[in-house]
Simulated assay, not measured.
Amino acid sequence: MRLNLRQIEAFRFVHQTGSMTVAGEFMGVSQPAISRLIRDLEIDIGFKLFDRTRGGLTPTADATEFYREVQRSFYGLDRLGRAAEELRRRRKGELRIAANVATSFYLLPDAIQRFHQDWPDIKISMHACASPEVLELVAMRQHDMGIAVVPSTVTGVHRSALPVLDAVCILPGTHPLAAKRLIHPQDLDGEPLLLISDYSLTHQHVFRSLEDAGIDINVILESTFSAPICNLVGQNLGISILEPLTARAYAGPNLVVRKYAPAIPVELEVIHPINRPLSDHAMAFIEIVRAQLASFKN
């Protein structure tokens, strides 16, 4: 049996209000039209829905049970409506991005500028935070996509690799090691080091390379983010090995950037919620970021 949605809607309003006249006002039709919808529905389903009394309309026992099922169906329609609204919002012109701090400050501004030229009507919302928080925000569907360094064991998000950059060594411009083109762990024996905090994947790789070299590791400062480290290196406080986005942004007479060996990959990835496909404009943004990273690497 295939029921008429208009009839079901009329039944729902009549059951809720106890009046065909009021139900008609809700639906924008006359009382006789509501009466016909209810009569036709009773014919289709094969049982009576309302008893007509002087006090108005009283739903039958069958009608009350039927109403419960109708309500469940309308709750489902409400969910569909909310899902459609979310899809409409995404297609209409908003892109919510969460990205780690280095990417947010030193990569995405240029990407956003290029993206805006092609998609001028798309509003971008950007949230800068540490990589673990990026992962959490995207997994909870609070953002459409994220860009971060993500552990290989992570589940619950769809992930896509971006061009890999290598960590670099940064030194004060006046440091004797600044004359070298390539810095090795042995060069850093006993040198004061400023490193990213130890929960970072980059820190773990950097520290392992130093340990494997068997040198005296002299860490005098750890920081959650790269920018304060760059400032302090520029003030001749020490040496660091970190991601290249922030390092190159701070490069100048007081801070020089050198290659570091063994190579330590900084593997940024794009993540987005599982079962939520990316919009066309989100995919276009990712391609811009991908191209920028590829040129940055060169």
Rank of each mutant, 00 (worst) to 15 (best):
L77K: 09
I97W: 05
V256T: 09
P32R: 11
I112V: 14
L278H: 03
F296V: 10
E86P: 02
R6M: 01
F296M: 09
A161P: 10
R248W: 05
I34Y: 04
S35H: 15
H272I: 05
N275C: 01
V256N: 03
L87D: 14
R6E: 12
A99I: 04
L57K: 10
S35V: 04
I183Y: 02
D118S: 12
I288H: 01
T53I: 14
A167C: 04
T21D: 12
L182V: 15
P32H: 02
G238P: 09
L95N: 03
V206D: 10
F50C: 01
F207A: 07
K123T: 13
V138R: 01
T246C: 14
E211K: 12
A98G: 11
V14M: 04
V257Q: 04
E243Q: 15
A63C: 07
G146N: 08
E65A: 13
V289R: 06
E25W: 00
E191A: 13
A139T: 09
P273G: 02
P265G: 01
F50A: 04
V256P: 02
M20S: 08
F26R: 10
A282I: 14
D78K: 13
G156A: 04
G214Y: 12
R39T: 11
D62C: 01
K92D: 15
R82K: 10
I34M: 05
D44W: 00
S279F: 03
L107S: 02
S200R: 02
D144W: 09
L80Q: 13
M126A: 00
R12I: 12
E85N: 03
M140Q: 15
M140E: 15
F66A: 07
A179R: 12
P120D: 13
V164A: 09
R114G: 01
H127L: 14
F105H: 09
L245G: 01
D166H: 11
A249G: 05
G28N: 13
L37H: 07
G173K: 08
L77N: 03
A161I: 04
L195Y: 01
L194Y: 04
H272M: 10
P172L: 09
M20V: 04
T224S: 12
L57Q: 06
T103H: 05
N298V: 11
T60P: 08
I147D: 00
V101W: 09
E269T: 07
E222V: 03
D280H: 12
D189Q: 05
K180G: 08
S35M: 11
G156P: 10
I274W: 00
A128V: 07
S226G: 10
Q16E: 14
N4V: 10
D187M: 03
R290V: 01
L242I: 13
G24E: 02
E94Y: 00
R2M: 15
L201F: 10
V233A: 06
S30W: 05
S200I: 04
L221V: 01
S197V: 07
L87H: 11
P277M: 03
A61V: 14
S226F: 00
L137W: 11
E222K: 09
L171H: 00
K48L: 12
A139H: 05
K123P: 02
I217Y: 04
S104H: 04
V206W: 06
T60V: 05
T60A: 05
E267N: 10
I241H: 00
R208C: 05
A130H: 12
L37R: 15
